[in-house]
Simulated assay, not measured.
Amino acid sequence: MDDVDFALVNALQISPRAGWSQLETIIGVDATTLSRRWSRLVDSGLVWSSCFAVTPPEGPRRSRGVIALVEVSCVAGERENVLDRIAPTPSVLTIECTSGSRELILTLSFRSVAEVDQYVATELATVPGVLATRTHFSRTFFKEGTSWRLGVLSQSQIRALNALPASGIDAPARPTPLHEQVINGLAGDVRRSATSIADEIGKSVATVTRAIGQLLYAPWARTRVDLAHNVVGYNATVMVWFSVPHHQLETVGAGLAMLPETRMCCSVVNSANLTAVLWMRDLLEFDALEAKIARAFPTAQIEDRWMLPRFAKRLGHILSPTGRHAKFVLPNPPALPSNWHDLP
């Protein structure tokens, strides 16, 4: 990937369905070239995109899903076999390989705590090669991949992207069955054409186009553009677990979320009650970053640190051992909790 590719990905992280002619004006590269480059990036597995539902904050409590992080210890030499067995599971959203005393960390989404427990105890724990599991139930997400940005565009370019015409200001308070169909249609490719989705669900192109415009600005939907981070220069990923006094959780979590290196940050139910995933260009950066965090948040005690040398699945997208996109499995959770997004 070169500078134009990075600028294109950054632009689509901000405005995922911007037209090529709109991006031509902002990036300064002709529309045909941008379209061709995007197709190349997607076809090579370097870049992919997602669309998913979240429960509106004002929605009924019973409708909100549960997110859990689950450590998985494997029999020596069995990690890849375990990966192959669990990766197709729709409610296993993300799988990361780890260093240390466990081999995998999974992100699960289910309707309830009981359903998480049942899956872990009766399905995950019985997969051949699984030695042990440990579950951490999430509480609040201060940051996740939807809001992570490459950060290569200028402020004027970002303002121009944010100023593009919005067609979804009339989005309803909650998604309709049509919106749910359209979200599923965009789930594995946020730039999929309205015509293709309309043909699939039996609606008019105009109806689908309007629904897409609405969900792009609605509080109950999210879009994101991901990339094979290890292939494009993010060579060190570390997961850090903190023990933070309860009354400072919001402050520390929000502060960590503001760091450009933070990919994910959430509070969990455990003695180590806050965790963050950090993306860096080189592991040598971690010493300075850890010192910076310690100075800013002296009461946040680091309990553990893991390397994450490989992402095997990310929000339904199964990745190859080299980190490139391989296939998509439509997630089958309820709408993700409303805390699955950045806080102010």
Rank of each mutant, 00 (worst) to 15 (best):
residue 272 A to Q: 01
residue 327 K to W: 13
residue 247 H to T: 07
residue 2 D to H: 04
residue 72 V to R: 03
residue 159 R to T: 13
residue 17 R to W: 07
residue 141 F to W: 08
residue 122 T to F: 12
residue 143 K to Q: 06
residue 195 T to Y: 05
residue 210 R to D: 12
residue 14 I to P: 00
residue 217 Y to L: 13
residue 106 L to C: 10
residue 257 A to M: 06
residue 197 I to N: 13
residue 228 A to D: 04
residue 286 F to D: 05
residue 46 L to Y: 07
residue 207 T to C: 06
residue 305 R to D: 07
residue 120 V to R: 12
residue 273 N to A: 03
residue 98 T to N: 04
residue 250 E to N: 03
residue 194 A to Y: 02
residue 116 V to T: 00
residue 70 V to L: 07
residue 143 K to G: 07
residue 231 V to G: 08
residue 131 L to R: 15
residue 5 D to C: 09
residue 29 V to T: 06
residue 213 G to C: 15
residue 175 P to R: 10
residue 249 L to M: 03
residue 292 K to R: 15
residue 160 A to K: 13
residue 210 R to N: 14
residue 271 S to R: 08
residue 197 I to K: 10
residue 201 I to H: 06
residue 23 L to M: 10
residue 102 R to Y: 13
residue 206 A to C: 08
residue 21 S to A: 11
residue 49 S to R: 07
residue 272 A to K: 00
residue 205 V to T: 09
residue 104 L to P: 06
residue 93 L to M: 13
residue 161 L to V: 12
residue 244 V to W: 03
residue 213 G to L: 14
residue 161 L to N: 04
residue 235 N to P: 01
residue 84 D to L: 11
residue 84 D to M: 09
residue 66 V to I: 01
residue 165 P to H: 12
residue 210 R to L: 13
residue 197 I to Q: 07
residue 59 G to Y: 10
residue 333 P to R: 10
residue 137 F to I: 11
residue 325 H to M: 10
residue 175 P to M: 12
residue 279 W to I: 03
residue 168 G to P: 11
residue 114 A to E: 08
residue 309 P to V: 14
residue 327 K to F: 07
residue 285 E to I: 00
residue 87 A to Q: 11
residue 98 T to E: 08
residue 288 A to W: 11
residue 87 A to P: 04
residue 109 S to W: 02
residue 181 Q to Y: 07
residue 263 R to H: 04
residue 147 S to E: 15
residue 160 A to I: 12
residue 61 R to M: 10
residue 82 V to P: 01
residue 53 A to L: 14
residue 145 G to V: 01
residue 331 P to K: 11
residue 134 R to Q: 12
residue 66 V to F: 00
residue 61 R to T: 09
residue 45 G to L: 10
residue 87 A to K: 09
residue 244 V to K: 06
residue 270 N to E: 11
residue 43 D to K: 13
residue 282 D to L: 02
residue 15 S to I: 11
residue 93 L to F: 03
residue 44 S to P: 05
residue 229 H to V: 09
residue 112 S to T: 04
residue 264 M to I: 07
residue 46 L to K: 02
residue 277 V to C: 06
residue 308 L to Q: 06
residue 31 A to R: 10
residue 109 S to V: 02
residue 65 G to C: 03
residue 288 A to R: 09
residue 69 L to T: 06
residue 17 R to I: 13
residue 324 R to Y: 14
residue 219 P to N: 15
residue 16 P to V: 12
residue 204 S to K: 08
residue 85 R to L: 11
residue 234 Y to I: 15
residue 143 K to P: 04
residue 311 F to N: 10
residue 164 L to H: 14
